[in-house]
Simulated assay, not measured.
Amino acid sequence: METTRNVQPVTVDLGKEGSGELVSSRYAVRVGDVNVVVISDGVLPLPTSTMSTNVSEADRNEWFDGRFLQRDTFDWALNVALVRSGEHLILIDSGVGDGFEYFARAGQSVRRLESAGIDLAALTDIVITHMHMDHVGGLNVDGVRAKLRPDVRIHVAAAEVAFWENPDFSKTVMPEAVPPALRKAAAKFMQLYGENVVPFDRTVNVAPGVSARVTGGHTPGHCVVDVASKGEKLTFVGDAIFEVNFDHPDWQNGFEHDPEKAKDVRIALLDEAAETGALLAAAHVGFPSVCHVAKDGDRFRSVPVVWDY
């Protein structure tokens, strides 16, 4: 017997103010008993040369052509993450914030948290993978500090805090305006949140199933965040891995303070994910960035998760 379903029509007014965004800006995945939500902070337009400072222009162009991307400037994804483990609600990084005219399409994470019904006062912990401005900037926005609980714990590697007291940019290849902006953002972050910073040496257990470990490389105190529960695992790798690095793990990034160590860290993390089958998410891999990693000779393949609606 044929069954008739009563299907209600859905209408969308694309021009109506307040109708919401046209694309998803958050994606949830469950890791055992732990919930993880990746949130897009937006995109950063950057020179393509910053993705491959140790290769020829021809090699760089070949990769960008193969991805149907422009050769000079491209949109670099910027993601943060929210983790709920038991009574702990943990923010991983905070996006770039405001005040940067050239990054006008980023700085969305705080607004998107609030639009998702997340009260900033509910955050018990924040993990900062490193103190670059696109990771601490969201916390620096006027009014954000007042919305957070006074005793919020902010986990940052001790080596990272020490580095930004007198940062060394001698091995980086950044646009001229970036180093002063990085110094300013790191200093403001410590001024606002120094009393809340909980420094750690190698690893720290943030909540049941949630820990951070120092990798170094990108910055001296760069860390990744591991979420593990009931035999499942996801690692948020911060800036250790960029989109181009699946194909070319040896290509160096202009924002890396120790490019050679960053390469070793990157390959070790990719090998780890390929061997264990763990999920990987990253700050600068196209949203939502959640993927498995497959080994392909001396290269790797990102195998994106199939979206679960």
Rank of each mutant, 00 (worst) to 15 (best):
A262H: 03
T219E: 04
A181G: 11
F246D: 06
A240L: 05
A181V: 03
V214T: 08
D247H: 13
F189G: 01
V197H: 05
E260L: 10
A212R: 08
P180V: 00
P259Y: 05
D247R: 06
D226G: 06
P259V: 04
E232Q: 12
P179R: 03
V237H: 07
F242D: 06
C223H: 11
P179Q: 04
L270D: 04
S211K: 13
A262M: 03
K184T: 03
A185Y: 03
D271P: 11
V224N: 07
R202A: 13
K233N: 00
N205D: 15
K184E: 08
K230G: 14
L270A: 08
C223Q: 13
V244W: 01
L234K: 05
D258E: 09
R183I: 08
R266C: 09
V178L: 13
P179K: 06
F200D: 14
L269W: 10
V178I: 15
K263W: 05
F246V: 09
H257Y: 04
P208M: 05
N253H: 13
E260W: 07
G217R: 02
G194W: 11
F236Y: 15
V225H: 08
L182N: 09
Q252E: 13
I241H: 04
T215N: 08
A240M: 07
A262L: 02
A177Q: 12
Q252R: 11
F242H: 09
F242A: 07
V227Y: 03
I267G: 07
Y193M: 04
E195M: 10
H218S: 10
D201S: 15
D258T: 02
W251V: 11
G209Y: 01
P179S: 04
K188E: 12
A212H: 11
T235W: 01
A240N: 08
S211T: 14
K261R: 14
P199Y: 04
E243T: 07
P249T: 08
T235M: 09
K230N: 15
H218Y: 13
E176K: 04
D226L: 06
V225A: 08
V265A: 10
F200P: 15
P179I: 02
K230P: 13
G209Q: 02
V206H: 08
K184Y: 01
K184D: 07
Q252H: 08
E232T: 10
P175H: 05
V237R: 11
S229D: 09
